[in-house]
Simulated scan of single mutants.
Amino acid sequence: MSTSAVLKPAATQPDLAAVKQRQHGAWSSGDYAVVGTTLQIVGEQLCEALDIRAGSKVLDVAAGNGNATLAAARRW
């Protein structure tokens, strides 16, 4: 038996119904209008603190809901 065969874990399929149920529970448990508003304000404050100006380069890689990126774009 080769070493690579020993190190490979057995492939398992996720229980998508359980994942969906947990996601539904998480999304229905909070006031996301307040969260969205807060994230927008924080994105604006972040761009202010970083002093982003026209010509600046910004990289947003899965950094939330995109509000910080939109705030940066408005400064150009």
Rank of each mutant, 00 (worst) to 15 (best):
M1H: 10
S2L: 08
T3E: 08
T3N: 06
T3P: 12
T3F: 13
S4I: 15
V6M: 14
K8W: 12
K8C: 13
P9R: 11
P9K: 07
P9C: 13
A11E: 09
T12S: 06
T12D: 03
Q13Y: 13
Q13G: 01
D15N: 12
L16T: 15
A17F: 11
A17P: 05
A18M: 07
A18Y: 14
A18K: 14
V19T: 14
R22F: 06
R22A: 13
Q23C: 14
H24Y: 14
A26W: 15
A26I: 15
W27I: 15
S29Y: 10
S29A: 15
G30W: 12
A33D: 13
G36D: 06
G36V: 04
G36S: 09
T37Y: 02
T37D: 02
T38S: 12
L39I: 11
L39N: 04
Q40D: 11
I41Q: 07
I41A: 15
V42S: 02
E44W: 09
E44S: 08
Q45L: 03
L46E: 01
C47E: 02
C47L: 03
E48V: 09
A49R: 00
D51P: 01
D51M: 03
I52F: 06
G55C: 02
S56T: 09
K57I: 07
L59G: 02
D60P: 02
V61N: 02
A62S: 07
A62R: 01
G64V: 14
G64A: 04
G66P: 02
N67G: 04
T69A: 12
T69Y: 02
T69Q: 01
L70M: 11
A71N: 03
A71K: 06
A73L: 10
A73W: 11
R75M: 05
